[in-house]
């Protein structure tokens, strides 16, 4: 082969460029990474930039020092209590959803007729969203709704139970959208666990409770923590149903309402940003705690997927 072959001449020409490009490629950086560029630009422009813009805005209140909006939020009991109100709603709701979903998903982890129907129907409330659920709750659980009529016709109660425009209305709304979510998520984690593990345990004489407690549950725990986190995120950001089926001035005045009011009723963007930052921080703190608990308590247990 002669010296003037295309390859022979091509390489020395680009030796300089080829050199560093080659070195980068060896470290895993090459042209293919450009495919990531649009997404990175997107996340920087539409998520990180607004986020940090909001963060710095929250330290530039309309009046007072850099922390005065945070100070304002925490010194005003009406505002400060929204954190507690939100957690009082979202933590029990998320916990209930996960705990109720585990036995159901465990029961239904195998294959059976109509499984797809069950899962399909469960998806409905998730896709309907909170606004429609709220409308349905107002109709169904209202004082003249079917639910109260049944209770009264059965003579269980004498006058309608108040289930809307209070804590319970929002709680039900969170369960209706959150429970199917938790169930489907746990179901998919459960189906990621090799069923032969349980069969192996059964051959060693483990009863169903022991099998669940000693084999499935430890393997499922990482999945449960993730499910709890995601369900909690859903519940924590409760907004339309807190207004529509809750008592937005009192028992269900959640933190998103406070943030919304600051931004869209008082037009105080620095204050709204400050509340939003507090909201994000509280949520991330809860998630961090759960994940920390997961890693410390269940180190080494790998199972399910993710």
């Amino acid at each position: 082969m002669s010296v003037s072959t295309p390859v022979g001449s091509a390489v020395p020409e680009h030796e300089g460029a080829g050199g560093w490009r080659h070195r980068l490629a060896e470290r895993g950086i090459d042209r293919q990474l450009w495919l990531l560029a649009p997404a990175v630009v997107f996340v920087v422009l539409l998520f990180l930039y607004p986020f940090f813009y909001g963060l710095q805005l929250s330290f530039q209140p309309n009046e007072g020092g850099p922390f005065s909006d945070y100070d304002r939020f925490f010194s005003d009991a009406y505002q400060r209590d929204t954190i507690g109100t939100t957690l009082k709603l979202s933590l029990p709701a998320a916990l209930f959803n996960v705990l109720a979903a585990v036995p159901l998903a465990y029961r239904m982890r195998g294959r059976f007729r109509g499984k797809r129907l069950v899962t399909t129907v469960l998806v409905v409330p998730i896709t309907l969203g909170t606004v429609l659920t709220a409308e349905g709750l107002l109709n169904y659980l209202g004082p003249a709704g079917w639910f109260n009529r049944i209770l009264m016709d059965l003579h269980l109660v004498h006058e309608p139970v108040t289930l809307i425009h209070n804590y319970w209305g929002v709680f039900f709304s969170l369960v209706i959208t959150g429970f199917p979510f938790a169930f489907l998520l746990i179901l998919s984690y459960l189906s990621g666990i090799d069923p032969s593990l349980e069969r192996a345990a059964a051959t060693m004489g483990a009863g169903w409770w022991q099998r669940f407690r000693r084999i499935t549950l430890p393997l499922l725990t990482p999945g449960l923590a993730t499910t709890f986190c995601l369900t909690f995120v859903l519940a924590f950001s409760v907004f339309p149903s807190a207004i529509l089926v809750g008592n937005p001035a009192g028992s269900t005045r959640v933190i998103s309402i406070a943030a919304y009011q600051a931004a869209y009723e008082q037009y105080d963007y620095p204050y709204a940003s400050a509340i939003a930052m507090v909201m994000g921080l509280v949520e991330l703190a809860v998630i961090a705690l759960v994940l920390l608990w997961r890693t410390t308590l269940f180190k080494g247990s790998t199972g399910g997927k993710g």
Binding site: A39, V40, V43, L46, F47, L48, P50, F51, Y53, G54, L55, L57, C229, V233, F236, S237, F239, S256, A259, Y260, A263, Y269, A272, S273, I275, A276, M277, M279, G280, E283, L284, I287
Partner: peptide
């Protein structure tokens, strides 16, 4: 960075974003 928008409540980043 890609995971954060899913883990955060929409209101938290929605208000700064709207601003």
């Amino acid at each position: 960075a890609f995971l954060l928008p899913i883990m955060m409540p929409p209101i938290t980043y929605g208000i700064p974003l709207a601003t």
